[in-house]
Write a protein that binds this DNA or RNA. Structure first.
Lengths: 196, 196
DNA sequence: CTACATAAGTGAAATAATTACACTTATTGT
DNA sequence: ACAATAAGTGTAATTATTTCACTTATGTAG
């Protein structure tokens, strides 16, 4: 799907990019993120340092080869949902699907460990998700017939995109997902209880 | 309160730190963040580059001289609230107070413009708030008699700390605050409406 | 098929943030 | 007064990132 029907040039370009990403991930998992320089990655992939920067915006981006697919995924999830489904339910299903797909990856544990142990990568990962707050918020607003900048839609979008960040520091991911969607559906009864 | 009853050493240290922060802010507002190097700041404050790094963890930190006070502020807000007040109400009050204090600053507009126009600073500001998710979440859990890692408490904490990030990209701050607390109190009725 | 335009890749050099190190100087507590 | 300690200095090294002028491969119009 991604490497089809393209000219030789495009194919070679994609191959180079992939070689760099692969070399980077291998080295990072082997030695740790900070112990690997961009030059190391370039050498391992047999390209120049300049070429690495032609393909990736910076060192952190070498770790996350996805990013863009995510944004469209969320937006599509709400737009193409069955007509009798609420947007909250659609997003709930989407997240669960993403989660299960991620679970079934062999390198998953190493990968998570790499990110958890590298502050720069944690920060980058968080931003990677929350960067799409505006887009998802607008998509939600459109679905519900609200203004594009509707603050409630944006806040809801943000809370949902916070989920990956919430599943760190020894938190149970599935519980975090449940908690977020419970908040969205019913609010926070505990927090609103008064003590008098 | 901050510069009292300290020895000469501590006082000079604080003065140096302040001189650096002041020089940095002045230069950043004048020329823009990227056009000012750490060396420029050091020269303007008449200290060595090394000294700058002794006081601030990095270039971004030069802009945000608060950070730590914020965390304790939120935690105290919930702990010292009147006994007939819910934690949500206490946090609502606290945020509104912070907001009003910030409004009454002469440099506020320039400051906001500086951050909005500098991607690195936006990212840093977001992290600065959400960094305290775990602490505030734990404090909330303790108040409510839940487990320290209770996912709902943590999610609620995160949503509240998201507020500053939500007030960007042409969003109305007060509306964002209202939206977040409405979500916390009653959930998201619009998002849960089904269309059949 | 040829020639030209263009995009990918190269290599070197410049800039700037960040860290390490060995050193001087000022402050503090005894 | 003195020894311990913390603040500050200056230099040098490391490394991410950008810029630039250059080569080479590919695609394409004629």
């Amino acid at each position: 799907m991604t490497t089809e029907n393209l000219g030789r040039r495009e194919r070679k370009k994609a191959a180079t990019r992939q070689a760099i990403a692969d070399a980077a991930l291998t080295l990072f998992l082997e030695r740790g993120y900070d112990a690997v320089s961009i030059k190391d990655v370039a050498d391992a992939a047999d390209v120049s340092v300049t070429t690495v920067f032609k393909h990736f915006s910076g060192k952190e981006a070498l770790v996350f080869d996805l990013d863009q697919e995510m944004e469209t995924g969320f937006v599509e999830a709400v737009q193409t949902r069955p007509s009798d489904q609420s947007v909250v339910d659609a997003l709930h299903d989407h997240i669960l699907a993403l989660w299960r797909a991620f679970e079934g990856h062999s390198q998953r544990n190493q990968f998570v460990a790499l990110i958890d142990s590298t502050p720069v990568l944690r920060a980058y990962a968080d931003r990677m998700w929350t960067r799409h707050t505006k887009t998802l918020g607008t998509a939600l607003a459109k679905e519900l017939g609200q203004d594009a900048n509707d603050p409630t839609c944006r806040a809801a979008a943000r809370l949902i995109l916070d989920i990956p960040a919430l599943t760190r520091d020894g938190a149970d991911s599935e519980a975090a997902i449940r908690a977020v969607f419970s908040l969205l559906r019913d609010g926070w009864s505990d927090g609103n209880r008064r003590f008098n």
